[in-house]
Design a protein around this nucleic acid. Structure first.
Length: 302
DNA sequence: AACTTTTCCAACCGCCGAGTT
DNA sequence: TAACTCGGCGGTTGGAAAAGT
């Protein structure tokens, strides 16, 4: 017979993750590393299925994730890759190592698809741009080329748990204060095995309080630098992508890194769907991405 | 101010290929 | 070889926040 079931479907919790659950998951992965998701719920006591744990880690908690503020270059890459590969979000994400496939998929569905649609209708000579299109173009010029789009920033309401590494660092900071004994142990492990809480939001993400200039909300935060220095989890950080060989896949990088010593079965299916990196990568990064950027500069839509 | 509509995205669902027994 | 699960993927959705009326 096959393997035993990964988790009992009865009593499985669904919905948004709580800070406490995040901490439990992060702490567990700090200790054991990502992978073997089946054992995560049972070993941690989390009332989540293994899939949910993996998704949470992959999309939000793993180090190296950049959120919000897609740059024009990233937009161009996504548009180009989508045209080339179709809706192979994992494959596309492999060329944008700091982005998750879910993020790219969402961004495509909520932003780029609409923009392309407008762009196409704007290009249609029989359909002169409407006032709304013109204003969109102007808006795009002023907001998204010159400055990051407000809609893309992570200036979400802070009334709900935003599930960012920012919040995790905030939570862990309090957690470390409250139980120094236990946490020293974890810290010890971190020193050996590396940090989980890398935060790559330095440029893209600011807490709301800081953005508003108040600074009150972020005053008691442990800085990202502190966290990085305290917790350096190098073997969980993004796998180095050897661009010269194209042998390894970037993106889902921690997974890839974690899977390096695993059998082939655990490697992403997209491996098979992705054209050889050496070709695409060169084409995208050297030439076409430049063309896209050029197009985006020339085109008011991008 | 109150209500409605739209936007956005975190998370779930179902499927698939591959591995395990 | 069959029956089963795992990990991964893409599509979709629920609900909170934002925008509009």
């Amino acid at each position: 017979m096959g393997r035993p079931p990964c988790c009992d479907k009865v009593g499985i919790k669904k919905g948004p993750w709580t800070p406490e659950e995040d901490i439990i998951l992060v702490s567990y992965i700090q200790e054991h590393g990502p992978g073997n998701w089946r054992s995560v719920p049972t070993n941690t006591g989390l009332l989540r299925c293994s899939k949910s744990c993996r998704l949470r880690w992959t999309n939000y908690l793993r180090p190296g994730i950049k959120r919000g503020n897609f740059t024009p270059h990233e937009e161009g890459m996504i548009i180009h890759l989508q045209a080339l590969l179709g809706n192979k979000w994992a494959a596309i994400a492999s060329y944008l190592p700091q982005r998750t496939d879910n993020d790219i998929k969402n961004y495509w569905n909520t932003h780029l698809k609409k923009k392309l649609k407008k762009f196409q209708s704007a290009l249609d000579p029989h359909m002169p741009p409407s006032d709304s299109t013109k204003s969109f173009i102007n808006e795009r010029r002023s907001l998204e080329i010159i400055t990051p789009s407000p809609s893309l920033s992570l200036n979400h309401s802070s009334s709900t748990y935003a599930s960012s590494t920012e919040n995790i660092s905030r939570l862990l900071e309090g957690w470390m204060r409250s139980s120094p004994k236990t946490n020293n142990k974890i810290l010890q492990q971190n020193t050996n095995s590396g940090a989980i809480l890398m935060d790559n939001h330095h440029q893209a993400y600011q807490p709301k309080a800081e953005q508003e200039g108040g600074g009150g909300g972020g005053g008691d935060l442990v800085s990202h630098e502190e966290f990085e220095s305290i917790l350096s989890f190098e073997n969980l950080n993004n796998a180095a992508w050897d661009k010269s060989t194209g042998d390894s896949m970037p993106g889902r990088a921690s997974q890839a890194a974690a899977n390096d010593d695993k059998p082939e079965k655990n490697k992403p299916r997209s491996d098979n769907n992705t054209p050889p990196l050496s070709f695409l990568e060169k084409w995208l990064l050297d030439e076409s991405a430049g063309q896209v950027e050029e197009m985006m500069e020339l085109s008011p839509m991008f």
